[in-house]
Amino acid sequence: MLKLEQLEKTYRTGDKALTGIDLTVPDGQVLALIGPSGAGKSTLIRCINRLVEPTAGRVWLDDLELTRLSATGLRNARRQMGMIFQEYALVERLTVMENVLSGRLGYVGFWRSYLRRYPQADVDEAFRLLDRVGLLAMADKRADELSGGQRQRVGICRALIQNPKLLLVDEPTASLDPKTSRQIMRLICELCAERGLAAIINIHDVALAQRFVQRVVGLRAGSIAFDGAPDRLSPEVLTSIYGEEDWEATSQQAEDESEGAE
């Protein structure tokens, strides 16, 4: 279980990105984080694994308080938090298999990783994950030969081979077409269900979030403006998160685009 208590982030410029965030995410729950640009979504995800240091508050993963860990303790704790990035963060010159196995770096150490000396169990798991996401035949291809959707699947495998307790997912569909976006969201949710994984997905596409996740949290100006089931995202609620918009027309347009891409 992930728990945030009064989490805050203020940058050196004085800009307050997060204010008093209280949030609990149980094991197995997939949560979508929505909100306008600058609302604090990416900052919130990065404060959890301390890629961005919180200014105040506490973050717990089960009984481990992440916000009080030393550098060594944090390095070990990050093994339990898989990260999936918007821009994939793959090493272009490496193969698909090598990129997936890089997710084991926190376990095998730099030199064994550099020399490609991974335990056979790790290699077997990488093959199994690539098979699960439909990329087994591309294990030996270089990452720069892949499409955007294929790259994101490699990123998913790299995160999962850590055997994490939590997935932190930052705009996984921002660079993808509508059909591929649905495939990636469906895949993430299925894998979380199979493994009992909690996930927080920062996503800009409200309709996509409503279609796939169990819970939606809306941020506005660094504070939680909504926390509930996707079907409670009424036009009034969306207006409170994003501001004035013809939400019924926007929802219909998204639905038409989705049907056209099927």
Rank of each mutant, 00 (worst) to 15 (best):
L23T: 04
V169T: 00
E244Y: 12
A199S: 08
D231I: 14
D205Q: 05
A139R: 13
S70L: 12
R68A: 14
L64P: 07
D140S: 13
V25E: 05
Q80M: 12
A225G: 13
L197A: 02
Y107H: 15
L233I: 08
L61F: 02
A32T: 05
C157S: 06
E53H: 06
V25W: 05
T95H: 05
W60E: 11
R104W: 10
Y88Q: 00
D144R: 05
I34T: 05
V30A: 06
L105Y: 09
L74V: 06
R220P: 04
G106R: 05
F212L: 04
G148S: 03
T180V: 09
Q183R: 12
P119L: 09
A139P: 04
R116I: 03
Q150D: 06
F226C: 07
A143Q: 05
D246F: 12
D256R: 14
L105S: 09
G218Q: 08
I161Y: 03
Y114P: 14
D231A: 14
E190D: 11
S102I: 11
Q6C: 13
A209I: 04
A193H: 13
T180G: 00
E236V: 14
I156K: 02
Q150G: 07
L146N: 01
G109V: 06
A198T: 03
R46L: 12
R93C: 07
A199V: 03
E8W: 15
L135R: 03
V25A: 07
G218Y: 09
A126H: 01
G57W: 12
T10V: 15
Q29S: 10
L64G: 14
A193F: 09
E245Q: 15
T43P: 11
P119E: 11
T55I: 14
R104P: 06
L187I: 06
A221P: 13
Y11S: 11
P26A: 08
S102E: 07
T43E: 07
R78Q: 10
T24F: 14
E171M: 04
E98P: 04
Q80V: 08
R153N: 01
L2R: 06
C157G: 00
L94E: 14
L160W: 00
T55G: 08
T180L: 00
C189S: 09
